[in-house]
Amino acid sequence: MLYREEAPKYAKGAGQVVALQTQALRKVFTVKRKDAGLAGSFRSLLKPSWEEKVAVRSIDLTVQRGEMVAFLGPNGAGKSTTIKMLTGILHPSSGEAKVLGCTPWREREKLAFRIGAVFGQKSQLWYHLPPIDTFDLISRIYELDRADYHARRDDLIERFELGPYLHTPVRKLSLGERMRCEIAVSFLHRPQLLFLDEPTIGLDVVVKQRIRELIREVNRDEGTTVFLTSHDAGDMEELCSRAVVIHHGGILLDAPVDRLKREVLNRKIISLTLAAGYDASMLPPLPGTEVIAGEGRRLKLGVDLAVTDIEAVLGTVIGTYRLDDVTVEDPPMEEIIAHIYGTGG
């Protein structure tokens, strides 16, 4: 790990209760190695060779009750594997973990009553049936008292604004509507700790925003601890107070989001679609701004927020060109990781 806040800030004590703790958690998969092409397939058939792939090298982590922690990293960093070990889906190769007092892979069923899990790519909704039927099934899975279930379901339906599509088969819902249902269903049994694995993957900006608001609201009202994996830095910025960045299966950085924003996430990408072709000579010099790409009607600018702000850059651009479309994004996670490496933490 290149950088980490001082441990006492997160250690048990001062009235805080630890929700989750891991020590040297490690997962190694054995995968078959095959050379390319048909000849490679024959060689592999006659003499298979195997290699070890370290998905999670060693994770030491402590999360307090009520915290909202972002677990970030590029694809293949080990985020999903870690979350699967913490929910009891995968057995680790070595190391220890306690989640709400349980060892997940040994006390899976007991723990599952008290945690929730949303996997962006693995739906728990019945595909051919409306969400209301899945609500009913989930209430039986978690053995909820009937009166309590109905009250809780109605509250979630109202809060997540599910009314209009509660009776529509899931296969006919948009991805955003489905994700809203997925997250609402995961709150049905009032989990003390919610694992969200890429909850905003594939969603548009407006739906992402709404889902983040809903998660924040339940965390605030019910004190639910949220452990969120994402490769979208926006999830972290808008939801979490603490960010843990992992790379190559190990923790690269563990810091408050405010500090991260100040020191690492100090860059935004502005993507513009111009009404006419891009002419570099028209654009006046903009301090802290670089032209990443400019071709045809497309213009992409990188903005250093330590030097200037989005408003100033956009004001100049709007005064110079006529625009058809504007998008402001965080830099991709790979760039953030490279930046953390570049600054030594």
């Binding site: 209760v17 630890v18 009750r65 709400l100 007092g101 007991k110």
Partner: peptide, 13 residues
Amino acid sequence: MSTEDNEQAGGLR
């Protein structure tokens, strides 16, 4: 390693 006790968690079935 210790996290909150099961019994304290309120909700252990």
